[in-house]
Design a protein around this nucleic acid. Structure first.
Length: 289
DNA sequence: TTCCAGGCCCATG
DNA sequence: CATGGGCATGGA
């Protein structure tokens, strides 16, 4: 008989946490979500004050969902401006996950110039083709994200068959660098933010944006502030003077100074709110109307 | 059909 | 340091 554990971590917006483009493999199941944390099949559902999960998964879930992040304090550290107020109201219960390093690095290498839905598609395809099969509690099978070794063996030519396009080359190269020990993802934990970013950027396909995603979503570096097309647009439209020319350096400097040590959280709230608003006002709602 | 997507990389000013 | 173009694929 299954024994359950409740992990207090209010506030918690599980749909936003698992569906906001941090992670790409969770699926709605029953009253909650089913997915893998590393190579373990896990089920989670929201309770009034936190997360309900199988007792034997509780430790893993606490780490993955970063229940040690004090959301109230993080929210309080933000400046009180209109865009942040709206974003907090919309998804203030979203949590920044603490994902396995390679899985996060690899999925974001495949994310360049791709929509979230397609990143998910690529990710699931790589899992089912090269990942370890993991039986779930009900007998169903899920696939772990493939190891660097598995992807290095597959190589560029074969990876292209998964619809990766030019990303096949960089993913294969990164897998090789990690598998050979040239880049040590575990050792990066001990480095400063700047050193860690530089080390990640030694991997092919990892530039500043992807490195910041990995620092934020895998290493818990909450000051990391990924600037993608959405955030670029938001900063220009809502935060930066139209008069001065906005160079990459200007944007970096502004993000660090204005959003501070929890800038990554601010970034993810702004990103998710903007993206959700746009989708509601276009495709989905138009169909419903 | 055209446009653009959670960019990266390399070549030039 | 800043800017421009190329890069593969698929959904809107």
């Amino acid at each position: 008989m299954t024994r359950w554990a409740n992990i207090p971590c209010a506030p918690l917006d599980l749909p936003a946490t698992l569906g906001s483009g941090q992670v790409f493999h969770w699926a709605a199941s029953g009253r909650g979500y089913a997915g893998l944390i590393g190579e373990r099949s896990v089920y989670v559902e929201a309770t009034p004050d936190g997360i309900r999960t199988r007792r034997e998964d509780a430790t893993l879930v606490r780490t993955y969902f970063a229940v040690d992040h004090d959301l109230a304090a993080i929210h309080a550290s933000f400046r009180d401006d209109e865009p942040m107020r709206l974003a907090l109201k919309y998804c203030g219960g979203m949590r920044i996950l603490r994902q396995p390093e390679w899985e996060c690095t690899a999925t974001f290498i495949t994310s360049s110039m791709k929509q979230v839905a397609h990143i998910r598609q690529i990710s699931l395809r790589l899992r089912s083709r090269y990942g370890k099969a993991v039986p779930g509690p009900a007998g169903e099978v899920a696939y772990a994200y493939p190891s660097p070794e598995a992807l290095a063996v597959a190589g560029e030519t074969e990876l292209k068959l998964c619809g990766l396009g030019y990303r096949a080359k960089t993913l294969a190269g990164a897998a090789e660098a990690v598998a050979s020990g040239d880049v040590d993802l575990e050792a990066i934990r001990g480095l400063s933010d700047e050193e860690a970013r530089a080390e990640l950027m030694r991997l092919p396909g990892v530039g500043e944006k992807v490195a910041n995603c990995v620092l934020l979503f895998a290493y818990g570096r909450l000051a990391a502030f990924p600037v993608d097309t959405w955030i670029d647009r938001i900063l220009r439209e809502k935060y930066l003077s139209k008069k001065r020319k906005v160079t990459p350096a200007v944007m970096r400097g502004f993000a660090r100074e204005y959003f501070g040590p929890n800038g990554g959280y601010a970034q993810q709230y702004l990103f998710h709110h903007a993206r959700s608003s746009r989708r509601r006002s276009t495709s989905t709602e138009r169909v419903a109307a």
